[in-house]
């Protein structure tokens, strides 16, 4: 299932389970979830809302404990926030009382180290945000805020980037623009990226592999290898292959919780179509 596509296992989730204590009893959020992400790989996790995707990501980032199982980064168990992990949150999550510069330097402030100004400047330029340092988050558009939060996550040069539905609140055009930007940045930096989304097309467009998570309790339903060549173009969204693949993944999500039936594939077609 976890077939490697080059590189070695960077991040391993081993039978992760998670229960939350709620007033109405324990809530089973994550059920025996395993995955492995290779060094430099782009992996997405898709699934319906509330299926435990964020729980999974938070556990991988050491923000949450697990009820069972473990997470390993470079072979070491992750038991708390890890300096090699940069996080990009839903809705950018900038601090509204800080201007852009102060927001981006926030990680350095927490780590009590000098901010890498040259790197920050380069990243800001890369995402087209140079000259906005004095602006406050409320003065920026949603897309710009999310760009800033990507710069913030990359500012201290982590080897793993974890993105939690980063573009969920953006309009379709901005979202596509951001998808392109993320792919470009990934191609340039070759970070290991774990990307959470409920937008299947987005996941397919960005990823080397798409992990499908079933509805609560979240468990691994299936894995799709995406082999479209890179860099990918936005035209991909309009192709027949992409359309079919997205529908297949969608069907796979909806198939749970009933008994799983695998559609017989038409002869000559594989689950991992390649597009020229």
């Amino acid at each position: 299932m976890n077939k490697t596509s080059g590189g070695q296992a960077k991040l391993v989730v081993q039978s992760a389970s998670k229960f939350y204590d709620t007033r109405s009893g324990p809530l089973h959020a994550l059920d025996n979830y395993s995955m492995s992400v290779n060094d430099g790989e782009f992996v997405s996790v898709v699934g319906p809302s509330g299926c435990g995707k964020t729980t999974l990501l938070w556990s991988m980032a050491g923000l949450h404990s697990l009820s069972g199982g473990a997470v390993y980064l470079d072979g070491e168990a992750v038991t708390g926030p890890h300096p090699q992990i940069g996080m990009v949150f839903q809705d950018a999550n900038l601090l509204p009382w800080r201007n852009l510069t102060k927001n981006i330097q926030f990680p350095f402030e927490i780590k009590r180290i000098q901010p890498d100004l040259a790197r920050i400047e380069h990243l800001l330029e890369r995402v087209g945000l140079q000259g906005f340092g004095n602006k406050f988050p409320r003065e920026l558009s949603g897309g710009m805020q999310q760009r800033a939060s990507i710069v913030r996550a990359l500012s201290f040069n982590p080897s793993v980037l974890m993105m939690d539905e980063p573009f969920g609140a953006l309009d379709a055009f901005t979202r596509e623009e951001m998808n392109l930007l993320v792919e470009e940045i990934w191609l340039e930096t070759r970070k290991t990226i774990v990307f959470i989304t409920h937008n299947i097309a987005e996941a397919v467009f960005l990823s080397d592999r798409v992990h499908v998570m079933s509805a609560r309790p979240g468990s691994l339903a299936s894995v799709f290898e995406i082999t479209y060549p890179r860099p990918r173009s936005l035209d991909l969204f309009a192709t027949r292959e992409m359309f079919d693949l997205v529908n297949e993944i969608k069907a796979d999500i909806q198939r749970k919780p009933g008994p799983r039936v695998v559609d017989p594939l038409p002869p000559g077609q594989t689950k991992t179509p390649a597009v020229g």
């Binding site: 980032a61 926030p81 940069g86 949150f89 999550n93 601090l95 926030f106 927490i110 201290f156």
Partner: peptide, 21 residues
């Protein structure tokens, strides 16, 4: 929760979270 998680992800201590968030 999201802002506290943000600070925690950079390794912020309880005190830092209080002062900065």
């Amino acid at each position: 929760l999201a802002k506290i998680a943000l600070a925690r992800s950079f390794g912020a201590s309880t005190f830092q979270i209080f002062i900065k968030i």
